[in-house]
Structure formats: structure tokens, C-alpha cells
Design a protein around this nucleic acid. Structure first.
Lengths: 234, 234
DNA sequence: TATGATACAGTCCAGACTGTATGTAAATGA
DNA sequence: TCATTTACATACAGTCTGGACTGTATCATA
């Protein structure tokens, strides 16, 4: 049916203010990605249907299909977004650590609280599980994992040093990340004290061989990859 | 339409041998459960539809609905079955360890190979992820985890002793299990050398404080819960 | 061996999901 | 200001899922 009276929106919205196409696209994609990660965390991979995602984002089905031709495409981009968020979170975390007294304990606690006991990590678990049957997703997540590890490694070696072992700080923290992954996966099945004791246990066990370098109060040098991600993150 | 010529099956099957009702039910349930766990590992939670499960089991839709009124019921029973399988696997594993020279390394390797780098663990991951949105499943898995831990704890304290730390062997092995969980979750995303180095790293790090008790060659005393499960396992 | 209970098979249906096709509003640029 | 492209909205088609339902074979028992 042609020609329906328009000019109602302008009456409702305060300042409809013209947005450039690119702004509109970016904002829409942002909403979709955020909703996708939310949905992955809350509803799981299976429960994250396109309908539920667009409902969560408060947009129409058409918007999604316009920006992402397939569900696969949306999830792949959401994985990328997950990487960026993780990067940023890790960055602020490492910065805050530099001021702490007991850096090891603070780092472990902060990693747990802010990275593994979070909805974002739940979303990651869902994606990892799904990547078992999705080669493309596996590729993306694998690359993501390597990049985060590559970011974390110099920071670990910058803040800490090992003694009496062949392992470098980065190796120790890789172990820590595996431990936290396992804890995070089963966090809802384990009691709080068990988790607490595991975190403390690791710190107690690692502290004799893992010392914070003295006189290091400034943040570690950011690798180039970091800034590249941060700037494209919007 | 009534009365179709029967007596064809007897011609085909060698010995149709009367099976008791209970035998039939048990056999059918066994097939369904095995197919469910297989499907969880291979197709994931979302991909494990009833149709795919019964196809995998080679039975009809009706058989499934007869034994399990809902999909939920089937999955809950499959979780139970997963527990029993894990129990048994852990049992044989612990037995085999008793003969090894370097028990710690052997135990870690065996746990990894036979418990975490397996389809059964993949199925577990799928169930854990799903349990995030299924209170009943979470209950079942939580109970299962506690029972396995309760089984493992005395065995760990029986084979090993700690020195120079407040942690008991069981605490160390709980840490190990979390580590292996994390590794197992991301096994397909990590390279073999990384996994290998993590396993070896843990052993190297734990061996100074975790010693195998001398003169222990017999298997640990089985807790009552163990036999209870083993006998009902069929 | 007759009768009721149990085990299993096959089909149907309402709902949900993804992808597509088509229509409308907003921005761009000449 | 108008044509064109881009952004978004809605309706629909085809497929699949889980549960309900009906029918048949097998077993237990009196």
C-alpha cells in the first residue's frame, strides 16, 4: 500500500538528528554483537536463536540479516568481538595490578573475578563447545587464544620472574589460565570454598618460585597488536 | 489392517531365544544411553536431537519414548550413566597406576589420555554447559562431581603423601583435575606441544612436594559407594 | 492358552528456526 | 531536489524438533 502519513517519528523523538550511514551501521552491529554475547552467556549456544538475539537487541529481524547474511557470520563476528573485549579487560586488569602490594594474589583474584567468573567467559565456553563441530569457528577461536596468550606472555615476564625452576613466568601463568578455565567451566557445580581454596592454593604453591620483579610500577609495554585492537574496538 | 503373516523373524534370526522383559528393557536402555553419550560428544548438546539419537542407537522413536517420557529424562539418565562410566574408568586407571615406577607422571598421563582427552569428557562438557540453564541437570552433575571427588580423595591420599606444604594430596589432585578440565575444554584449540608441556610442567612442579608412598603396591581400599555403583552398572 | 501388561514401531502435528523475498524509510550525491 | 544506494522492517517458505497418538509384537501369569 502506497503513501502512509509519515512525520510521526519526528514528533516523538526529541532530536532525530541525522546520523551518517556508517554511524547507523556501526551502532546496529554493536547492539547485535552485544546481544549475541549476552545471549550466548545466558541462553547458551543452542538457545541463541536469531529471533532471540534480535529481540534482545531490540531490533528487527531484517536489520540482522542486512548486516549478517547468515547466523554463522554473526557468530564469527561475535567471536571477534569477544576477543576485543577480552583484550581490553586484560589490559585494564594488568594496569590495576601494577599498584598492588601482593601482586600475585591480586592478579589471580582479578583474573578470576574479572575474566573467568563472568558472563563473557560463559559465552566463550559455549563457543568453544560449538567449535567442536564448526571448523571455521575453531579457527577463529584458536587464533584468538593465541593472540591473547601472545599478549599475556610479555606482560607476565615483565611483572614477574621465576627462581629455582626452568619454567618462565609465562608458562606458570598459562598453567594458571588452564586452571581458571577448568574452574570457570564448572564454577556453578563447585562450592565457593572449593574455588577459593583452589585459587589460594595455586598462589601459595607458586609464590616461592614466582616473584614480582622489584621496582616495576609502570605498566608493561603494550605490544603493537594491542593498540591495533583497541583502536578498532570503537 | 488385521492379521499379517508373522513367523518371518524366527526364520531370519538364528536363535530368537526368549528374553525376559527386564533383559529387553535393560538392553534397550543401554543402547539408548550409549547413543546419547556418543551423540553428545560428536553432535553436541544442540545437535543431540531425539531423532539423531534413536537413529544412532538403531531403534525406533517409540522405543525411546517408552523408556524415557521426555528428552530431559533421557539426558538425566545419560548423566547418571556418564558418572558410572567415569567411576569405572577411574577405578581401572587407579589399579594400573599401582604398578608404575614413576607414579605421578603415569597418573597424570593416564588421567589425561583416558579421562579428559576422550569423547566422554566432551559429552561432559556439553552437559555442564547445558546445566547452566537446567537446574535439574545442574543438581545431577553437581552430585556426580562430588561423588567422583569423594572417590578420588582417599585414593590420592592412599598412594601419595605431601611434604613441605599444608596441602594434602587430594588438594593437589583437585588442582590437577581443574587443570585437566581446562586443557580438555580447549584441547582442540591448543597445540599438542603446549598440552604436553603443561602436563609435564605440572608434574615437575608437583613432584618435589608430592611423593608416592613407599611400599604401596596394592590398590586403595574401595569406598562403599564405588562397589554400589559398579554392581548396578551391569 | 487366554488375557492383560509391557515393549516397541511408525505417523502426525503444532511450534520454532533459518534463510529469502519484498516493501519502506533514511542517507548520499549530483 | 531528485535519483540512487543503503539501512531497516515484515511476511513467507521450507525444514526440523519434540511430544502425542495409534497400532503391533512380545512377555507374564493365571
Amino acid at each position: 500500500m502506497p503513501r502512509i502519513a509519515p512525520a510521526m517519528k519526528t514528533a516523538i523523538t526529541e532530536k532525530p538528528r541525522r546520523r551518517t550511514q556508517e554511524e547507523r551501521s556501526e551502532a546496529m552491529r554493536k547492539r547485535l554483537l552485544a546481544a549475541t554475547l549476552e545471549s550466548l552467556a545466558e541462553d547458551g549456544y543452542a538457545g541463541s536463536t536469531l529471533s532471540s538475539i534480535v529481540r534482545r537487541a531490540g531490533v528487527s529481524r531484517g536489520a540482522q540479516v542486512h548486516h549478517y547474511p547468515s547466523k554463522q557470520a554473526l557468530l564469527l563476528d561475535a567471536s571477534e568481538d569477544l576477543l576485543k573485549r577480552t583484550y581490553r579487560r586484560l589490559g585494564t586488569l594488568l594496569l590495576s595490578i601494577s599498584e598492588e602490594d601482593n601482586r600475585l594474589q591480586a592478579l589471580v583474584d582479578a583474573c578470576w573475578e574479572q575474566m573467568f567468573a563472568t558472563p563473557l567467559y560463559r559465552a566463550y565456553c559455549e563457543l568453544v563447545a560449538a567449535s567442536q563441530r564448526d571448523e571455521e569457528l575453531a579457527q577463529a577461536l584458536g587464533a584468538m587464544l593465541r593472540r591473547v596468550m601472545a599478549l599475556f606472555e610479555p606482560a607476565a615476564n615483565y611483572y614477574f620472574e621465576t627462581s629455582g625452576t626452568k619454567l618462565r613466568p609465562a608458562d606458570m601463568f598459562l598453567q594458571l589460565s588452564c586452571l581458571l578455565s577448568g574452574l570457570g567451566l564448572q564454577a556453578t557445580l563447585l562450592s565457593k570454598p572449593v574455588i577459593r581454596s583452589q585459587l589460594d592454593g595455586w598462589v601459595r604453591q607458586a609464590s616461592p618460585i614466582l616473584r614480582a620483579r622489584k621496582g616495576i610500577t609502570s605498566p608493561p609495554p603494550r605490544p603493537a597488536a594491542w593498540d591495533r585492537v583497541l583502536e578498532t574496538a570503537g
